[in-house]
Design a binder for these strands. Structure first.
Lengths: 187, 187, 187, 187
DNA sequence: TATGAATGAGCCTTCATTCAT
DNA sequence: GATGAATGAAGGCTCATTCAT
C-alpha cells in the first residue's frame, strides 16, 4: 500500500501500472491479486486505511483541551501540520483531488469523514474564540476554511509543483500563516 | 481545446479517451488528428494556449497602478479571482497539479511562467506596503504565497471536492480572506 | 498511374498510401477518386494497362521472323531486355510477385497473359533450333524458362537489392547470359 | 517465427496482421509482445535468425573441397538447391525483395551477409575453372551471378507465381541449368 | 472538375487480470 | 503462498474513402 500510495500520488490512478506497484513493493504482479481484488481495491484501501486511523487520532487530540482560543488554534494548526505534512499522509489530499472525477464516492467519503470533521474542529475553536471575545465576529465556517486552506494547499504543492518552485521554508510558511490568521481574527 | 480542458481537468490525462474529447467537441476521432499530432499535443496546447494570453493580460493589469498598498492588494486579489475563478482558466491549476508527475516540463513551465510571475507581483505590493509602513515587517515572499494560496486552493477545490462539500459562498470566502490578510499584515 | 506504379513497386500495395500517390502525381487525394474507384482499382489499372499494350507489341515483333535460331534467340532476348529493362515496365515483375499473395487473380492474369505467352515464343524458337539441328535436343519448355529467368531476375533485382549490390554492368550480364545459353544449347 | 515467416512471405509485412501471426502460431496477440517488442522486431528476427545459421553452414560446406571445377560447381548448385529450396528458407528471398523498399537496412544486411558471400564462393570456383583451363575466360563475377540467378528466381517463383504457372519439374529445371551452364562455360 | 476537411473502421500495442505450476 | 506466462479487451492512431464547396 505504501508503494501504491506513492505511485498513485505521483502519476495518478490510470497512469499507474500494476506492474509498477508490484515492482516497487518487491513482489510479483500475481501476488498483488492475492491481497487485493483489483486495481480499484488497492486505491480504496490506500485511501481508507491510511486516513481512518489518522482521523480518529486527530479527534482524540482535540477532545478535552482547554485554554485560550489562540493557543488552541495554534496547537491545532501545528498538530495538523505534523500529522499530515511530516508523514506519508501528505500525499493523500493531492491524490483524492486528482482522482475525484474518477472516484466520486471516494471523494465524498473523504469530504465527509475527513474534511468536514476536521473543519468542524476548527469551527468550534473559532466560535469559542468569538464567544469569549478573543476573536471578532465573523463567519466561523469561512474562517475555518481559510485557516485550513493554506495547509492543505501546502501538502498538494509538496507533491506536485514544489520541485519546480524555489525552495522556501515550510516553517516560515506555517508560522506566518498562524500569525496573520490570529492577528486577522483578533478583535 | 475547451472539450479537452474540461475532460482532462475532470478525469486526468490518462483516463481521458480521445473518443470522449472528440464526442464532447462534436467531431470525430480522426478529425482530432488533423489539428493535433497526438493526445499529448492536445494537452500541451490546452495548457499553453490558455495560459499565455492570461499571463500577459494579468501583467498589463498591474503595471502602472498607484494608491495605497491595501487597496492595491485588494484589487489584485479581486482581479485574480475574476480572471481565474470566473473563467474556464479555473480548471488549469487542478490539471497541472494532477499531471505534474507525468508532465514535469509542463509543471515547470507553469511554475516559471505563471506561478512565479504572479507571486512576484504580490511580493512587490507587499514590499511596497512594508516600505510605506502600512504593513508590518515580514517576509514578503512567504506573505505573497499566503495571499495566493487560498485562491489557488479555491480553484482546485471547485474542480474536485466542491460538489461534495456543503455549498459555501465563494464571495464570503474571498472577502474574509482579504480582510484577515489585510488586518494580519497591517502594522 | 506512373506515380502509383513507382510507389507500389517500391513499398508494396499495403504500405503505399493514397496520399503518397496523390502527392507524387501532383494532385489531391480526392481527385484520385474521380478516376479510380478505390486503391485496388489503381493497382489493377497499373498492372493491366501497362502490360497489355506491351504484350501485343512484343508478339508482333516476333511474328514473322526468319533466320537462324541463334540469331532469333539473340534478337528475342535483346528485344525483351529493351522492352522491359529500359522502360518503366521493369517494375512490374517485382510488383506482381510481391503482391501475388494478396492479389491472386492479378497474378494469374499476369501468368496467363504475359508469362506463358512470352515463354511460348521462346519455346517456339528453341524448338525451331532443335528441329533445325542447331540446338541439341532438350526440353524446350525448361530451356525457355532458363532463357528468361535471368532476365526477369535482373528486373526484380533492379527494383529491390541492386542498390545494395556492387554496381555491375547489366550489359555484360545480358551478353554473357546469351553466350552461355547459346553455347549451352548448341549441338 | 515460422508463422510469421509464412505470412510475411505470403502477404508482405504491412498486410500481415499481428492477429494473424498469433492465430497461426496458436497463441494470443498479447503473447507475441512477450517475445517481440513489435511487428518490426518479429520481421527482423525472422530474417536474421533464419539466415545466419544457414550462411555459416553453407560456408563450412564449401571450405575444403577439391576436384574438378565442373564437379565442384555441380556440387555447389545442388547444395544451394537443397539448402534453400527444400527448406523454409526458400521463402526468404521473396520476402527480402518484396520488403527491400520498406526495410533497406535489412536488404543491405541480406546482400552483404548472404548474397555477396554466396556469390564469392561461386566466383572462386569459376575462377578456379578458368585458371585450370576447364572453363573458357570470362568475367567470373558475371558468370557467378548467372549461375545463381535461376536458382534464386526459382525460389521467388515458388512463393509467388508458381501456383498459377503450369506445373513444371524443378528437377529438370535444375539439371538443365547445370548442363547448359557447364557446357556454356567449358572451353 | 478539383479540393481537402471530415469520417470511422481497422490495426498495433498496452496492461489489468487469470491461472497452471 | 508466490510466481510470471498468457490472455484479450480497450484505446491511440492511421488512412482509405466521402462529400460539401
Amino acid at each position: 500500500m505504501d508503494a501504491a500510495l506513492e505511485l498513485f500520488a505521483e502519476k495518478g490512478f490510470s497512469a499507474t501500472r500494476m506492474a509498477d506497484v508490484a515492482k516497487k513493493a518487491g513482489i510479483s504482479k500475481g501476488t498483488l491479486y492475492l491481497y487485493f481484488d483489483n486495481k480499484e481495491a488497492i486505491f480504496r484501501s490506500v485511501v481508507q486505511e491510511m486516513i481512518l486511523p489518522q482521523v480518529d487520532q486527530h479527534d482524540a487530540m482535540i477532545a478535552n483541551y482547554t485554554g485560550s482560543a489562540e493557543s488552541l488554534l495554534r496547537e491545532l494548526l501545528h498538530g495538523w501540520w505534523q500529522a499530515v505534512m511530516e508523514t506519508k499522509l501528505s500525499a493523500i489530499p493531492k491524490l483524492i483531488i486528482s482522482e475525484s472525477g474518477n472516484f466520486p464516492e471516494m471523494a465524498e467519503f473523504f469530504v465527509k469523514k475527513v474534511v468536514l470533521r476536521s473543519r468542524q474542529t476548527f469551527i468550534k475553536v473559532i466560535q469559542y474564540g468569538i464567544d469569549k471575545g478573543e476573536f471578532k465576529p465573523c463567519n466561523p465556517i469561512t474562517a475555518a476554511r481559510l485557516a485550513i486552506a493554506p495547509l492543505v494547499h501546502a501538502s498538494i504543492w509538496m507533491h506536485s509543483l514544489k520541485a519546480f518552485d524555489e525552495n522556501h521554508s515550510d516553517e516560515d510558511y506555517l508560522e506566518l500563516h498562524i500569525n496573520l490568521l490570529l492577528q486577522g481574527l483578533s478583535s
